[in-house]
Design a protein around this nucleic acid. Structure first.
Lengths: 208, 208
DNA sequence: TGTACATCAGTGAACGCGCGTTCACTGATGTAC
DNA sequence: TGTACATCAGTGAACGCGCGTTCACTGATGTAC
């Protein structure tokens, strides 16, 4: 049976969206073309009417996941972004979470077209965090370095907390510690307990 | 042909060691039993004389990789550890690098016996970094949180720098920025330019 | 507006291939005498 | 110390299976008249 153009476009979009979630949940190699098409309510044979290869879809789904997350995060201020990123919901919701936290480990072993998505995704994310840092009163000269350090820590925390999900106490501790530490280092919203307003990270000595 | 007991044990050890490197390089699913045995100079059929399943070997190779790296890192002070972890050699040498940076992303999707190795590996690593922080003059009360934040950032930086290896400038920038940032936050070896000795992280505002 | 027909998204069987695992076999090792 | 034989690590063909991809076919859609 032939299908209307509108229906076909809708089906294609659904496959990409389904793939964006499944790849994040199970990794690129953990999702077969047949799995994916079934999850999208279709059969595997039609896949190649829409995509040249699985690698092509991997690149497209990755790009969409990255763009979608960026749009979502752009709507938050720094505190909101950090709180959401280092939440249990994010740790436990791989399929709807940050593609970098879910797939960066696999990225280096994927086809060039997929790797390219990560390069631009990381660059875009760091630029956005840098802007967010400046909006939160970090001086421009320090904002880039702060963005890189901050985002590295956030990705590492989510990756590690997921890797030790079998030990919920340890997994929670990693997430909670990093969240608290980063939030404390950000310039407080307006009033800050009895602390100085331009408080720094509590990582060196002397915070006991 | 039968082989001497010594030769057999040597072969088994070589398979585990080869696996520890190949899994880190290509991921657990990127190495077949046949690949692995060939790389160890054997044929695939003999695999099951030594291991009950591929998953068993994955767990054993992971445990060995984690233990080996811990032993290596234990010999370094905090500065040496940070410098080595955030080096280009580490980024480019997956097979001989930290199993957490190389395989944490895959860990959550692996059999329970493999996941268990990551749980104990992460716990052991955090405890070691905590001890290292105290040795570097961080007060005990702050050492745990510092260790978690520090290691998360280091893992995230290596994961991200590997994910954007196609853009060497960006990849290097992530590594270099995190290394500089973390080293600056550690209590300096003995004399520290014109800076205060108990300098903190430069992430908040006011460092420009 | 109706009718005839080309199009092409979707179907499901089939392809070659590599996977993890099994198995009959080999022959040097290690043991019993 | 020498001989006979059981052991078992290693070999390579074979297993069923799921993978990515191809293909002949279907039949509603969209177009030409």
């Amino acid at each position: 049976m032939k299908i209307s153009k509108a229906q076909s476009q809708e089906n294609r979009a659904r496959v990409v969206q389904t793939a964006a979630a499944l790849f994040r949940e199970r990794g690129y190699d953990g999702v077969s073309v047949a799995d994916l098409m079934l999850a999208a309510g279709l059969t595997h044979g039609g896949f190649y009417k829409h995509f040249g290869s699985k690698a092509d879809l991997m690149a497209e789904a990755t790009a969409q996941a990255l763009a979608g997350k960026m749009r979502e995060y752009e709507g938050l201020d720094m505190r909101g972004f950090v709180e959401r990123y280092l939440s249990r919901e994010h740790r436990d919701g791989r399929g709807d979470g940050c593609p970098m936290a879910a797939l960066s480990g696999d990225a280096a072993r994927q086809p060039a077209e997929v790797q390219a998505q990560f390069v631009s995704g990381i660059a875009t994310m760091l630029a956005a965090v840098e802007r967010g840092a400046m909006a939160a009163a970090t001086p421009p000269a320090a904002a880039r370095a702060q963005a890189i350090g901050l985002f590295s820590q956030m990705v590492g925390a989510v990756v590690l907390s997921r890797a030790c999900a079998d030990d919920p106490a340890l997994s929670d501790e990693i997430l909670d510690t990093c969240r608290t530490q980063i939030l404390a280092a950000l310039v407080p919203p307006s009033s800050a307990g009895g602390r100085a307003v331009s408080k720094r990270r509590g990582r060196g000595s002397g915070d006991a």
